[in-house]
Design a protein around this nucleic acid. Structure first.
Length: 334
DNA sequence: ATGCATGAGAT
DNA sequence: TCTCATGCATA
């Protein structure tokens, strides 16, 4: 299915663009209902989407639309937004739980490092206490200091370079996409060699008591390794992960073991349900996005209505889509 | 590994 | 309202 989408989509766009208005306009009577959508651009996108539907329905039996209800849970956490710095989640039973201050464990190796938590994170209870510890593990969220706003990696002026150097920073060496890519790969290999999962690394990061650095999720570690983070995000995380890697390998030399234990699950809280946008709707959204990556609120509402999706779902979809475009991977020509 | 979501800070 | 960094849930 993915293959179909990838190969078909660009083609459809071309069909659309090259075929001019005539045929397309003919396919849009339905759009009249939504006057807001009928301003050409969206209409055309919609036509495109329709073509996509027809094509794909031939390509494979289209599963009927998935659930489209949003289902928001709102774990009422009356507590303050916890800081990632000192929060301790012990459900995994594989890290901290340092009764005697053995908190220096940076490699949360369990008896079987790669067995549990990887596939189906067996930590269901941490929801209510973990919730969403935003603000991130980085100090980078502080108003004044945002990472670097350099749009392009290698674009440094000599004067700038000097200034940066003076500031005690190492510019290109760390910001170079290739360096990042290389590091990410090295990191992954060595991590695996240590028998540590991505989730393990994320948690161990909190034990590495670097200022302003808390735990991270398996998702983030994964994204770092696969370069699916923004350039700035990669740059910010690199030194942290590098620090962990070095510590972990150091500790690996003089083995150690820890009698793990508790995984007392505090038990239940409403679990957040992920809304799933069905393939047809997704295709439409992609079509719209190709023409208008940043639709106005009105258009979003119109699109939402047309696709029978919650407006917020559509809005978030566009946000995520934009974010996706900005990610590293092949974004910056390598 | 990745889709949909949240939340803080910037616009 | 958007962007960004992140995360839970899930394929």
């Amino acid at each position: 299915m993915l293959l179909i989408r990838i190969t078909l989509y660009p083609l459809l766009i071309h069909i659309l663009m090259l075929s001019g208005m005539k045929n397309i306009e003919a396919n849009v009577h339905q759009g009249d209902i939504f006057s807001g959508l009928n301003d050409g651009i969206l209409s055309r996108a919609e036509a495109l989407a329709d073509i996509g539907k027809h094509q794909s329905s031939h390509a494979h039996t289209q599963m009927s639309t998935q659930l489209k209800h949003d289902v928001m849970y709102h774990h009422s956490m009356g507590g303050p937004p916890q800081r990632p710095l000192q929060m301790h989640h012990t459900m995994d039973g594989l890290d901290m739980l340092d009764p005697a201050g053995s908190m220096t464990t940076l490699t949360p190796m369990s008896d079987t490092p790669t067995s549990h938590h990887q596939l189906h994170g067996s930590y269901h209870g941490m929801n209510h206490m973990m919730g969403h510890h935003h603000g991130g593990p980085l100090g980078g969220h502080t108003p004044g200091r945002h990472y670097g706003h350099h749009g392009h990696p290698g674009a440094h002026h000599p004067a700038m370079a000097a200034a940066v150097a003076a500031a005690g920073l190492h510019p290109d060496t760390d910001t170079d996409p290739r360096e990042l890519e290389a590091f990410a790969e090295r990191f992954k290999q060595r991590r695996i060699k240590l028998g540590v999962t991505q989730a393990d690394v994320g948690k161990a990061l909190a034990n590495l008591k670097l200022p302003g650095v808390g735990a991270l999720s398996q998702s983030t570690i994964c994204r770092f390794e696969s370069l699916t983070l923004s350039h700035n995000n990669m740059i910010a995380l690199k030194p942290i992960l590098q620090a962990w890697l070095e510590e972990a390998e150091a500790q690996a030399k003089n083995k150690r073991r820890d009698p793990d234990a508790p995984s007392v699950l505090p038990a239940g809280e409403k679990k957040r349900k992920r809304t799933s946008i069905a393939a047809p709707e997704k295709r439409s959204l992609e079509a719209y996005f190709a023409v208008q990556p940043r639709p106005s609120g009105e258009k979003i509402a119109a699109i939402a209505e047309k696709l029978d999706l919650k407006k917020n779902v559509v809005r978030v979809w566009f946000c995520n889509q934009r974010q996706k475009q900005k990610r590293m991977k092949f974004a910056a020509q390598h």
